[in-house]
Write a protein that binds this DNA or RNA. Structure first.
Lengths: 118, 118
DNA sequence: GCAACTGCTTACATTTAGGTAACTGCTTAC
DNA sequence: GTAAGCAGTTACCTAAATGTAAGCAGTTGC
């Protein structure tokens, strides 16, 4: 099989890696993309998000939500009614990840098909 | 912000998650995509790949290469010359990941720009 | 007045990934 | 003959991620 980037110098290869790593640093991990999908799908409340993702624990969810908020991928709003109501929503910025998620979804579907065919 | 998948039922949301997870199970981790990029860029020999990826160790590289081979993303060939020569190359299948990698790269570049702007 | 829901936090344990360094058997170059 | 390269393996260790379980302060419903 021919190489994909035949023209690439070592530095170009390295630059490509570092850039991809920048992305992975933010969105990799077992849960982040799943949480983003859940919120993009309209789940807003903590327990709602928690129930939508199989096997996630409150602890992990709380931590990941903080991470995502720090990276401005989601917004946390507290409405001081009683009882206190908390809502997580998608930011504009998280929509820049749409294509990444779409491609991951396409590839996942394709890969599953491949596995089952064997 | 409006939700991205407003029409989606709980089951659709779940299906989307599971499919994306299938993809992540194969390609997530600190090193896999970087190794794929290295091999796609034309690096073939173990030491060559090792040198192309900053801070990776032989142990981790060996393990990840086995994983990638199992998933048929790369091909390992042993030429029984003396000394033994081993070559890792990209399979056709790994090219189905091209778009995923491209989108990760785009997003990483964009994200870096965003961070620096602040 | 008791169970159940909310949005979490805490303590503790285990699992997994990853790092470090040494070492192997073989070969070539000086 | 000795250093250095090749393609790894092995043993040991640390750190990070994740799991488990319980609890809390407040509210609602029966």
């Amino acid at each position: 099989m021919a190489e994909k980037f035949p023209e690439s110098t070592k530095n170009e290869c390295l630059a490509r890696m570092l850039t991809v790593r920048d992305a992975l640093d933010v969105i990799s991990g077992k849960w982040k993309i799943l949480i983003i999908i859940s919120i993009m799908s309209g789940n807003k409340r903590f327990r709602e998000i928690e129930r939508s993702i199989p096997k996630i624990s409150s602890k992990v969810l709380a931590k990941e939500l903080k991470d995502l908020e720090e990276h401005q991928l989601i917004k946390r709003r507290v409405y001081d009614e009683s009882p206190v109501l908390v809502e997580y929503t998608a930011t504009d910025y998280v929509f820049t990840l749409e294509k990444v998620i779409e491609e991951l979804h396409n590839w996942g579907a394709n890969h599953r098909k491949k596995i089952l065919e064997k």
